[in-house]
Every structure is written in structure tokens, then in C-alpha cells.
Amino acid sequence: MELNTFANVRVLFFAKSRELVGEKETVINYPSRISTRRILNELLERYNSLSVISENLILSLNEEYLDINDDLIINLKTGDELAVIPPISGG
């Protein structure tokens, strides 16, 4: 029996994603069991502006790299922290 089928995940935006989305962070209600590919896809659906850099970013979950892959199903829980990290190239 699953009590909680959704999780409120804190999403942090860095660098260009911050600029495109227009905010530093948000909370997204994700299904608790989800493929890592769908985590990204739902982000892109919610923020169309992110699609231009959808292939130029990495995701991390609780400060660990998240492989974006259809077959990789993970468990999310409320309070998890997802980070969207495109590279900065200036200096």
C-alpha cells in the first residue's frame, strides 16, 4: 500500500536556467516513483523557456549527479532537492 504517491520537491535553478525561468527556486509536486527522464520532461513542460538548453544542463538530486535516462526509475520524497545546472562559460 502506498500512502504517499507524490512528493514535493524543491527545485533550484542555477546560471542560465535561473535567467530563463525567472526564479531561483520553486517547489514541484512530482510522482514519488518516476523515471529521471520524466523529472526533466516535467520541468520542461512547466517551463517552456528551458527547452533551448534542455541538452546543455545537468541535474542533481540532493547534491548527487542524476543520470537522465528513461529506464532509471527512482523514488522521490518530500524535501528532496533537485538542482538544474547549466555550465557558466564566462570569467
Binding site: 542560465k16 533551448v52 538548453i53 555550465p87
Partner: peptide, 23 residues
């Protein structure tokens, strides 16, 4: 390496430099 993380370069119009973005 850099490519292991970022295999594809970003579209040029999405790249902000220090002159336009400030630092």
C-alpha cells in the same frame, strides 16, 4: 572531463558573456 558532463555545446544565443550579463 567537461564533455562527460556537457557533451553538447549550448546554442550560441543562450550564452551570456560578462560584458552583457555583468559580473
Amino acid at each position: 572531463c567537461y564533455r562527460c558532463l556537457y557533451p553538447k555545446p549550448p546554442p550560441p544565443q543562450t550564452v551570456t558573456n560578462c560584458s552583457d550579463g555583468g559580473v
